[in-house]
Design a protein around this nucleic acid. Structure first.
Lengths: 99, 99
DNA sequence: GAATCAGCTTTGTAATACAAAGTGCTTTTA
DNA sequence: TAAAAGCACTTTGTATTACAAAGCTGATTC
């Protein structure tokens, strides 16, 4: 028997990644530093979690210069938004006690 | 700045524990084997996750004999139900984009 | 008396998680 | 112009966690 918990997306099975996706669902372009401050994370920790989401194809990265400073921004990909939505649906079902 | 993600309960920050609690919220007495089958887990894996919830005081265990067979059942403690509910509330807020 | 069941515990391996420090490049600031 | 600081990582090192599989204990059914 396959339980609903096995349909939860492992890529989102962590509060930091959940937070990143939540932020990116609400704002479609967020900079590294804004994300870092919003989630109160160290550089390295954020970088590695975002890297995981990027590797999964759920987040896309773009780099440019704003004035003279380098600026990295993140966006949830269409795929990422969809996968996240499915994850939320599965979560909701699970928590409503459907097995 | 403390973000909402830091208010998520680490004890529930895993799909298996989430599943266990969801089952125990819906049914107040569940046996080891029923849980194991419902969630499709190996003995050891279930045992260790339940042990973590028990250690946190969120699940209580009782052992008795049913007929001639030993029988272990689990229940969500009052504390556990409350903590889980709070976790869900935090999750919900997070996913609605409140930071 | 061998196999089975219940419920773990142990073992071993692999995958995270995380902070802190280091890196490379550029730009302010003293 | 040398030092400090910002950006966005990467590396390092440590610690925790996840998990399957095997082992184990005590009882039981064949």
């Amino acid at each position: 028997m396959k339980h609903l918990i096995h349909t939860l997306n492992k890529a989102f099975d962590h509060r930091v990644r959940l937070g990143v996706m939540a932020v990116l669902m609400a704002n479609d372009l967020v900079s590294f530093n804004d994300l870092k401050e919003a989630l109160d994370l160290t550089d390295g920790n954020l970088a590695s979690h975002v890297a995981a989401l990027e590797k999964a194809g759920y987040v896309t990265v773009s780099k440019q210069f704003v004035g003279k400073k380098p600026n990295t921004t993140y966006t949830a990909s269409t795929e990422g938004k969809q996968a996240f939505q499915e994850h939320l649906n599965a979560l909701e079902k699970l928590l409503k006690g459907e097995s």
